[in-house]
Simulated assay, not measured.
Amino acid sequence: MVNPIIAAIISFFLPGIGQIIQGADVKKGIIMFVIAIILGWLLVNFLGSLGNIIYCIYALYAAYDAYKIEA
């Protein structure tokens, strides 16, 4: 298990990866990572700056989720 703060930082920049390195919820981490890729592409290409804000909110949620995982 990795320090929750490190997992949160990693998950902010790569949503879902923090969950994977914590080892507690690998399936959820993979799903979050795939969603982040699709969401990032859709939002940035179609909404521009607003899409960046929405993606940042998703990344913050992923970081919070990685931080609160109890293994």
Rank of each mutant, 00 (worst) to 15 (best):
M1S: 14
M1K: 08
M1C: 09
V2N: 09
V2P: 10
N3D: 15
P4W: 00
I5L: 11
I5E: 03
I6N: 06
I6G: 04
A7I: 02
I9R: 00
I10S: 05
I10G: 04
S11C: 11
S11P: 09
F12S: 09
F12I: 00
F13M: 02
F13G: 09
P15I: 01
P15N: 08
G16T: 03
I17M: 06
I17V: 15
G18M: 00
G18I: 00
G18K: 00
Q19E: 09
Q19H: 09
Q19P: 08
I20H: 10
I20E: 10
I20L: 11
Q22P: 06
A24W: 02
D25L: 14
D25V: 09
D25S: 15
V26D: 13
V26S: 14
V26L: 13
K27P: 05
K28M: 08
K28S: 12
K28Q: 14
G29F: 00
G29Q: 01
G29E: 01
I30F: 03
I30C: 07
M32Q: 13
M32N: 12
M32R: 08
I35G: 03
I35N: 07
I37H: 07
I37E: 11
G40C: 11
W41V: 11
L42A: 12
L42S: 07
L42T: 06
L43Y: 08
L43K: 07
N45Q: 14
F46E: 13
L47K: 06
L50A: 15
L50E: 12
L50N: 09
G51N: 08
G51V: 07
N52H: 11
I53C: 07
I53E: 14
C56V: 08
I57K: 04
I57R: 04
Y58I: 04
L60Q: 02
L60K: 01
L60G: 09
L60P: 07
Y61I: 03
A62N: 04
A62E: 04
Y64W: 02
Y64L: 01
D65L: 01
A66Q: 05
A66H: 03
K68H: 05
E70C: 03
E70Q: 13
E70G: 06
A71T: 08
A71H: 09
